[in-house]
Simulated scan of single mutants.
Amino acid sequence: MTNAPTAPAAALDFYFDFSSPYGYFAAEQIDALAARHGRTVNWHPFLLGATFKLTGLGPLPGIPLKGAYSMHDIARSARFFGLPYRQPSTFPIPTQHAARAFLWLHGRSPAKAKAFGLAAYRAYFVDDVNISDLGAVLDIAAGQGVDRDELSAVLAGSEIKAQLAAEVEQGIARGVFGSPFVIVDGEPFWGADRLPQLERWLQDGPF
């Protein structure tokens, strides 16, 4: 008698906003972290602005006391993770163009979408490229081998805008309110500082 094949372990759902430095820190590590434990990762672009309306909060720099601390913590966290980081000259920024580009690419090739996502994050948080600019997003995608004209036409259409809105709504329905936000086995983890907890969960199970 043969044993039934074991079902693959569930993928991690990784929600991120391209304007989030903590999202950048997580994006650089999440796939390798998951792979160490036989998991894969589904990346989901997200817009933090949609949650501000629900929580009554706003971007970190504008929050008294917490904002100043966060700017210090972001740079310290980059050093802790050993990642290059330069505080963007414009921060935060709207990231709809990058999020829509990622979502469209993901529908064609998740691997290409992730490569674009990392390139966009590095452009913003390492090279100080303002990725709220459509032209900058198209340049980054072209650098990843994406047809610039085709992507430009897609981003001008209403379909991809509706797809991103639905993606964000789905995230909010699952309780997502920050970046990075990871859901694994139904358990939510918010923040790059929760990566060690996430790894323990994957290694040893619920705690």
Rank of each mutant, 00 (worst) to 15 (best):
A75N: 11
R122L: 07
S89F: 04
S152C: 12
A50D: 09
L48T: 05
V129Y: 02
S89D: 06
A113S: 03
A153P: 07
F46V: 12
N130L: 07
F25P: 00
I140Q: 05
M71R: 15
A34M: 06
F80H: 13
W104F: 11
P59E: 05
R36Q: 13
A115M: 11
G38H: 07
P45H: 03
Y24M: 01
N42K: 14
T51C: 10
G56T: 12
L57V: 06
H106L: 08
G135C: 08
A26L: 00
P88A: 03
A27E: 00
L105T: 05
A99P: 01
A26V: 00
N130C: 06
L118Q: 09
A35N: 00
D133L: 11
L151F: 10
G58A: 13
L54M: 14
A35Q: 09
L138C: 12
G135D: 11
R100A: 01
Y124K: 07
P92H: 10
A50G: 12
Y121I: 02
L138S: 10
A111S: 15
E150P: 08
A34S: 03
E150V: 14
R39I: 02
T90K: 12
V146E: 11
T40S: 11
N130P: 05
Y69E: 15
L118D: 05
G117R: 01
N130F: 07
S152G: 14
V129T: 14
D147H: 10
L151Q: 11
S70N: 06
G62K: 13
G143L: 13
S77Q: 07
K66C: 09
N130D: 15
K53W: 01
R108Y: 04
F80L: 12
A113T: 05
V137S: 08
A68T: 13
A141R: 14
D73K: 02
T40V: 06
L47W: 01
P21Y: 01
L60N: 07
N42C: 09
H72Y: 12
H106Y: 13
G49L: 03
S70G: 08
L118C: 08
L83M: 08
R79Q: 13
L65K: 08
V41K: 00
A68W: 01
T95Y: 03
Y24C: 00
